[in-house]
């Protein structure tokens, strides 16, 4: 059985936002909603000033707080650990968005996308435009993963800052990275056991 996770190497991320664009294209996410984002800030003062880039996305927690609060069982965890929202079942109550400590669930008030025909001809099968009144989030590009591909954000990253893989494979690159680099995750005190790790 697989258990998917992602490692983000902060030392490699140069804030190019290719992952953000790829995610938006892949998911046809509505205007104003990005399922992965690069937070950035300036640090220090001239001449020692530099910038910090910090990619964030759904942490696909092992103990996701968004799952038990969902009244319609629209949010589920697959056997491989990917946390998904079923838009057909989602009633749009917003409870999951309030329960997510990482603020990585987005309520779709307006599902208009940037340009007509956006999202057509991309990898994800079927209609992929999220309807209004549901919650959307990163799905680790499960449709690509199921076909043996990497998530879109991982594929396009020019600096190889995002590494996706199977935690249940002891020899996998992701496991080695986590073990060797003292990987850490966000808000560990919340007890959610995130599957997105940071190194670098």
């Amino acid at each position: 059985m697989s258990r998917y996770a992602m490692v983000i190497d902060l030392a490699r991320c140069n804030g190019c936002n290719a992952c953000v664009v790829a995610c938006k294209v892949e998911h046809n996410s509505p205007n104003g909603i990005v399922l992965t984002a690069i937070l950035e800030a300036e640090r220090g003062q001239y001449p020692q000033a530099n910038r910090i880039f910090f990619p964030v996305l759904c942490n696909h927690c092992e103990r996701p707080p968004c799952v038990p609060v969902c009244p319609s069982k629209a949010t589920t965890v697959r056997d491989d650990g990917i946390v998904l929202v079923d838009w057909v079942k989602c009633i749009g109550c917003g409870a999951c968005a309030q329960a997510c400590p990482y603020d990585q669930r987005f309520y779709v008030k307006d599902n208009r996308v940037g340009f007509p025909g956006a999202g057509e001809g991309f990898t994800k099968p079927g209609t992929f435009k999220p309807p209004r009144g549901v919650v959307v989030k990163c799905d680790f590009c499960f449709h690509r993963v199921d076909e043996g591909l990497q998530p879109a954000c991982v594929t396009v990253c020019p600096t190889d800052a995002r590494i996706f893989g199977d935690r249940d494979e002891p020899q996998s690159r992701i496991n080695q990275l986590i073990a060797r680099n003292n990987a850490w995750s966000l808000l560990p005190d919340k007890g959610t056991r995130p599957c997105v790790y940071y190194v670098g």
Partner: peptide
């Protein structure tokens, strides 16, 4: 009216026992 999809409100009964919104519904 607070729901994104009021027509699907009865689906809120699917998680009785775990979700307080389900229990409340």
């Amino acid at each position: 009216s607070h729901l994104g999809h009021p027509a699907k409100a009865l689906l809120a009964l699917r998680n009785v026992g775990r979700s307080w919104i389900s229990n409340g519904t």
